[in-house]
Design a protein around this nucleic acid. Structure first.
Length: 424
RNA sequence: GGAGAAAUGGCAGAGUGGUCGAUUGCGGCGGUCUUGAAAACCGUUGUCCGGGCGACUGGACCGGGGGUUCGAAUCCCUCUUUCUCCGCCA
């Protein structure tokens, strides 16, 4: 959520910047400004009547104490009408304030100045690439055939137990999952992230804090009886640790990471390009999250990008890093780098990580602030997060890219974690 | 799931209808003293929303929401959470 101050002071800038996201903000901004003005008028009036009431109440108290009953009773009569008026004003103010909030929440985050204009993923900017793309050998298979051949991931079994998009990992397939999770967590720890294990169901307020509610309501599994949501990413519980928190500037940046399963309904997004492990309803992911000083948050973003990149290098996967253009940027993000690995079996890039700076957009919803030493004022933090990494597409790429006629080779960095060097 | 008790500022813990944003202690910050530190002493120390260039100033907040009252941390209703006992249980 954008701050009301920004809109008050720089409304035309807001409208201009949002054009990069192909978002026409003019009408909403105008509504917000009107409602904000009205809200402040109502508050001024309501507050002054309340101040008067408070004074009168104190006087009545003094009269009672002094035993002047008659005067007190007379004063009491006069207060009733004022009370009614005040009540109406404050109720109206509530309504106006809620309306303003509703409008404000509809505005996406402003893209950073470096974000290029653009309509779709085609306009994203490749900033770096690495690794070598392996050549297909005769008889090479896409991963959905490889997992059958070696009997390591079973989609049919998942359908039986739950439904489509909930695979069962078996034997070395399950072991490989665990190896990747441990490898990612160990690497994260070396990079200074504290591991946390958060709840994987969250309440409404947490969903709102990170911007998943109300915007992406349909993407999450909802447990109606308890009004809780299955997390689509560890970002939600981990970032919400810092909801309603005022941090000491000296502790920034705060770095946390978590492994969790993630649940996504993916309503209406099925098709030929999402076969196999490409898109699942449940998958595993290690997420890194930083709470940063506003002046240092892009340093944090760079550091996170380097960290994610180092994982791909160690896994010996061919990758590229793209900076999303305005049209591809999410509602909440100011800048996002996507990481893609080359899938030799499918002959295309697969997104395996999305690493973003949300600046104050989430922090404003979360009321996550910090204070400089000795300062009285609090300031909104910047929040960032990134996948480091999401498992399924990494597994897909590992299987496809490392297949040989004799089996699938496990990258040397993973072998000690997996306990085997080959799936055959 | 049943019965009971509780929820107050960073923490501990007073306050049961009137000037209480809230006694006090600890912690934090600033200072005096000291070669330095500790101790001691003095001062200061919540958040949010308005108004004002500013000094400053109005309002709200004692778990959340609602009610009674001229006036609520204090009384009533409701929800949530925590603790104790019982039941069930990984």
């Amino acid at each position: 959520m954008l701050t009301i101050n920004l809109i008050r002071e720089q409304s035309s800038f807001v409208i201009e910047r949002l054009k990069i996201k192909n978002f026409d903000a003019a009408e909403i901004v105008q509504n917000v400004l009107d409602l904000d003005r009205r809200r402040r008028e109502l508050q001024a009036e309501s507050d002054s009547i309340q101040a008067e009431l408070n004074t009168l109440s104190r006087e009545i108290g003094a009269m009672m104490k002094a035993g002047r009953r008659d005067e007190a009773d007379a004063a009491r009569q006069g207060v009733v009408a004022m009370k009614e008026k005040q009540k109406q004003l404050s109720e109206t103010m509530e309504v106006v304030s809620d309306e303003m909030q509703t409008e404000l929440v509809r505005l996406p985050n402003l893209p950073h100045a470096l974000v290029a204009p653009g309509k779709s993923a085609d306009d994203n900017v490749v900033v770096r690439s690495g690794g070598t793309i392996p050549h297909l050998y005769e008889g090479a298979l896409p991963h959905w055939d490889l997992i059958r051949k070696y009997d390591i991931i079973d989609f049919d079994l998942g359908v039986k137990i739950t439904g489509a998009g909930f695979p069962v990992y078996k034997g070395k397939g399950a072991r490989l999952q665990r190896a990747l999770i441990n490898f990612f967590l160990d690497e994260g720890e070396k990079a200074g992230y504290r591991e946390v294990e958060p709840p994987i169901v969250v309440n409404e307020e947490s969903g709102f804090g990170t911007g998943n509610l109300p915007d992406k309501e349909g993407q999450m599994y909802h447990i109606g009886i308890d009004n809780l949501y299955l997390i689509p990413t560890a970002e939600v519980p981990v970032t919400n640790i810092y909801r309603d928190v005022i941090l000491d500037a000296a502790v920034l940046p705060v770095k946390n990471m978590a492994y969790t399963p993630c649940f996504r309904r993916e309503a209406g997004s099925w098709g030929a390009h999402v076969r196999g492990l490409n898109r699942l309803h449940q998958f595993d992911k290690v997420e890194i999250v930083q709470i940063a000083h506003p002046e240092k948050s892009y340093e944090s973003l760079d550091e996170m990008v380097s960290h994610v990149e180092s994982l791909l290098v160690k896994l010996e996967l061919p990758y590229r890093i793209v900076r999303l253009c305005g049209g591809d940027l999410s509602f909440t993000s100011a800048m996002t780098y996507d990481f893609e690995v080359w899938s030799v079996g499918q002959q295309r890039w697969l997104e395996v990580s999305s690493t973003s700076n949300f600046e104050t957009f989430q922090a404003n919803r979360l009321r996550c602030r910090f204070r400089e030493k000795g300062a009285r004022q609090t300031t909104l933090c910047h929040t960032l997060n990134g996948s480091a990494l999401a498992l399924p597409r990494i597994v897909a790429a590992l299987l496809e890219n490392n297949q040989t006629p004799d089996g699938i080779k496990i990258p040397s960095v993973l072998a000690p974690y997996a306990g085997f060097g080959m799936i055959s």
